[in-house]
Structures are given as structure tokens and as C-alpha cells.
Design a binder for these strands. Structure first.
Length: 206
DNA sequence: GAGTAGATCCTCT
DNA sequence: GAGGATCTACTCA
């Protein structure tokens, strides 16, 4: 198991990076409590040209400033006032691409995750969906701006390989206000994996 | 099993 | 003051 190097995040093809992150291991350590899980669902957000992206049109605010940092940083923000959402910043400095990590398959520290999520036993939704994921892993605004190579937060590769057949691309969730950009196949999930957010309504049906 | 509505509060305009 | 990259419980078939 090795920590993914900075070069992995600094390419300019955020779609490739988003699909390549599937199967990798996301690890957090907080007060010596280690929690980790295999990434099963991601979404690509393609910088200034993507209407669903916080940096669309070059928008730059204190909140999204981290997106303009060099690839390999964590971008965490609060959504709907209650959920933390965890993104991986990609591309070079001043190119604000990001990959939203939506779901993991819990591996290490399951009791800790259950404790944080206030759930009695392990179910597929323990860390499925971006809000549930950050809650289970203990990710908060304190993690925003950190690099993904430190002891408290990193993404590792345990050598597992996924073929193109194992990966499904779908439209992203919850971004219908982004018009045609909402239809782009920028969401990636592992085929047949239970540990994926189970939103039951398709935002495109309307 | 599928669809709907309410909770909740930060950020930006 | 409006809107948002969500989640969960509830209702209905």
C-alpha cells in the first residue's frame, strides 16, 4: 500500500483522474483513530467551463479558494448547512478542477465510523453519499486545504486494478440547475457495488 | 419499492 | 434574502 504521489493529481484530465480514483483507499486519522475505505463513487467537476462547478466562469471566493491550489489538496465545504462534502483538487495551480468523493466501502475502523454516524451496525449506506462519507470518516472544514499526503489524511493505492468494464459513467447527482452540463457523464461508480449512494430518483426524469 | 417533502444554516449577491 | 454538489422519514401503491 503506497500513498498516491502528487503527480497523479496534477494532470489536466479530471475525468480520467475521477475514474482512476475508484478502488483507491481513502484514509483519515483523527486522535489516533484510523478509518479507511475503498472509493466506490466519484464525480468530476471541470473548472471554469463546468456550470456545476463552484469555480464556473472563474468565480473565486474565500470558500472555493482551495480549488485554485495545486492538485493534491483537499477541498471541503458545507452544503445545505449541515453536510460536509469532500473534494480532491486536481490539475495545476490556478486550474480549479476537482473530484467529489461521494462514497466508500468501509475497510478499517468500522466501529469508529459507526460511532460517528450514530448507527448500530454496518450497512451499505454507512459511508455512501458525500454527507455520510465525511461523517463516517470524521472529515470537517478543518481538513480543507490540507494535502492528501499527510498522516491525518491521504489516499493510497493497494494495487487493486479495475478494468473499464468495472466502471460505469452516469450523469452527476443534484446538479440539475447546471443545464446541459448536468447531463455530462462525469459521475463514476464501480459496477455492481453496493456501497454507492442510493438516490432513488433520477434528476433527469423531469 | 418508489416518490415526496421537510430539515437546516452557510455562502454569496 | 435566496438558494444550495444532501439525507431521511414518511406516505402510498
Amino acid at each position: 500500500m503506497r500513498i498516491i504521489p502528487a503527480s497523479f493529481y496534477r494532470g489536466d484530465d479530471v475525468e480520467s483522474i475521477a475514474s482512476a480514483l475508484l478502488g483507491k483507499i481513502l484514509v483519515t486519522r483523527h486522535h489516533d483513530r484510523i478509518t479507511s475505505g475503498r472509493i466506490t463513487e466519484t464525480e468530476a467537476y471541470k473548472g471554469v467551463d463546468d456550470k456545476a462547478c463552484h469555480a464556473y466562469g472563474g468565480k473565486r471566493t474565500p470558500r472555493n479558494e482551495v480549488m485554485y491550489a495545486e492538485g493534491g489538496h483537499a477541498y471541503v465545504y458545507i452544503c445545505y448547512g449541515i453536510h460536509f462534502l469532500f473534494n480532491v483538487v486536481t490539475n495545476r495551480k490556478d486550474h480549479p478542477d476537482a473530484v467529489l468523493i461521494r462514497s466508500i466501502h468501509p475497510i478499517a475502523g468500522v466501529p469508529t465510523m459507526l460511532d460517528r454516524a450514530d448507527k448500530p451496525d454496518l450497512k451499505p449506506n454507512l459511508a455512501a453519499g458525500p454527507g455520510n462519507l465525511t461523517r463516517a470518516l470524521g472529515i470537517t472544514m478543518d481538513h480543507s486545504g490540507l494535502t492528501l499526503f499527510g498522516p491525518g489524511l491521504h489516499i493510497a493505492d493497494d494495487g487493486q486494478q479495475l478494468s473499464n468494464n468495472d466502471i460505469i459513467a452516469t450523469p452527476r447527482i443534484g446538479v440539475e440547475s447546471a443545464g446541459v452540463d448536468a447531463l455530462r457523464l462525469y459521475r463514476y461508480i464501480i459496477r455492481g457495488n453496493k456501497y454507492v449512494s442510493g438516490r432513488r430518483t433520477d434528476p433527469r426524469k423531469a
